[in-house]
Structure formats: C-alpha cells, structure tokens
C-alpha cells in the first residue's frame, strides 16, 4: 500500500467519534462499581467480612478504608491525565498532602502507644493474607482501568500503568478493610501500603504492555 493510498483510506474514515473523556468514562462509570461489588463479593465469600462491621464503619476506624480510597482517587486522576498526550503532568500537591496525612497519622499513633507496644501494634498473624489479598483483589479494578486507559495515548505506558495499579490497589485495600481485624494505623499504613505498592508494580508491568499503541 502506498502512503497516498493509506491517506485515502484514512480520509474515508474521517469522523472521530466521541472524545477521549467520554471514551474513558464509558468504561469507568459502569466498570468501577462492578469491580467494587465483585471485590466485596469475593472477599465476603472467601475470607468473610469482619464481625460488627457496621459499628466499625461508624467509628474512626473507618479511616482505614478512607485513606486507601483517597490514594486511589489521586492515582486515578494521575492515570487519566497521563493518558492524554498534551495534558499537564500530574501535580504533586495531592500526593504530598496524602503523604503528610499518613506521616501525621503514624506520628500520632506512635506518640499514643508506648514504645514497648509498637511491634505488637505493627504486626499480626494476618500479614501474609493482607499482602496476598490486596494485590489479588486489585486485579479486578486494574483490568477495568487498563481497558479504559487503552482508549488514550499515553506517552509513558509504564508510568500510566503504575498509576492504574496504585488506584486499583487503593480500592482493593479499602475493600480489604471490611475484613481485616487489625485497627492500628501502625499495622494498616505499613501493610496496606505495601499491598498497594505491589499492586502498583503489577500495574506498571501490565501497563507497559497493555498501554502501548
């Protein structure tokens, strides 16, 4: 095919259809709630939800789910921006605020816990389950996010994939909090954090392949 013939063919396919934003949300709007419900269902059927869940959701322990949700929102925004070639680079204000929040939470907890209790608060028998479950659950929203982001034209597929992975990991950690009985910030900041980072790494590797164009 000569280039002129290719141009003639492309020209015959001229109308663009919807813009990127609509194409993204066409995936995300139905996809993310479905992935969320699927994660909750899978968790309830496998590990089970924690006892007295409703009482916990009305207490400050709710932060255990809200913090990962905030991280997911920030990472999702970054991923969506990265999917458009001319979008300004994702800002650092939101991540910095979240990091500050995490550090403050850790500092307050450490101050309130006697040093002899730090190790007990930060560890627990559920660590392996936590580190396995969060990345596994994250695969569901990650698939939705990557499918949506394929509509874009990311100039850095690996980085965009990592942001999608972090967003999926944050959502998965928030869902895992419905099971997890460990309520010390020392525990969930460290181990949820590690689970989310693992999900981010899976997303980076998947994105490097799936988001090429």
């Amino acid at each position: 095919m000569t280039t002129e013939a290719l141009i003639a063919t492309l020209a015959a396919d001229a109308p663009t259809g919807p813009g990127l934003r609509l194409r993204l949300w066409r995936w995300l709007l139905p996809g993310l709630p479905v992935a969320g419900l699927a994660m909750i269902g899978a968790l309830a059927l496998s590990l089970g939800l924690r006892d007295g869940l409703w009482a916990v959701l009305a207490s400050p322990v709710l932060g255990k789910a809200l913090l990962p949700l905030a991280i997911a929102a920030a990472a999702l925004l970054a991923a969506l921006r990265l999917s458009r070639p001319l979008a300004p680079a994702p800002g650092s204000t939101l991540p910095a605020l979240l990091a500050l929040l995490v550090v403050a939470l850790l500092a307050v907890t450490l101050a309130q816990t006697p040093p002899s209790g730090w190790l007990a608060a930060a560890t627990g028998p559920s660590i392996p389950v936590c580190l396995l479950t969060i990345p596994l659950l994250a695969l569901l929203p990650m698939a939705v996010l990557l499918a949506a982001l394929r509509q874009g034209a990311s100039l850095d597929p690996a980085r965009t994939g990592r942001m999608a992975g972090l967003a999926a990991g944050g959502l998965a950690a928030a869902v895992y909090a419905l099971h997890c009985p460990e309520d010390s910030p020392l525990f969930f900041v460290i181990w949820y954090g590690l689970g989310v980072v693992i999900a981010g790494e899976i997303g980076r590797r998947a994105g490097a392949r799936a988001l090429r164009w």
């Binding site: 095919m1 280039t3 290719l6 141009i7 492309l10 396919d13 663009t16 259809g17 919807p18 813009g19 990127l20 194409r23 999917s83 458009r84 070639p85 001319l86 509509q151 874009g152 034209a153 100039l155 164009w213």
Partner: peptide, 28 residues
C-alpha cells in the same frame, strides 16, 4: 511513516479542539 500516520489517525480523539495541534502531533 505509515505507522505514524495510522497511529495519528487511531488516536486523534485524544486531541481536544481547544488545544494547539502541532505539539500534539509532535508528541504522537
């Protein structure tokens, strides 16, 4: 060249009409 033209074609919905075109073309 044909790969580039085809890519521009298939990703042209990522250009917003209020954005400058040439930097977008450059990036793609």
């Amino acid at each position: 060249l044909q790969d580039v033209l085809l890519a521009i074609h298939l990703k042209r919905h990522t250009w917003r009409e209020d954005e400058p075109l040439r930097p977008w073309l450059n990036a793609l």
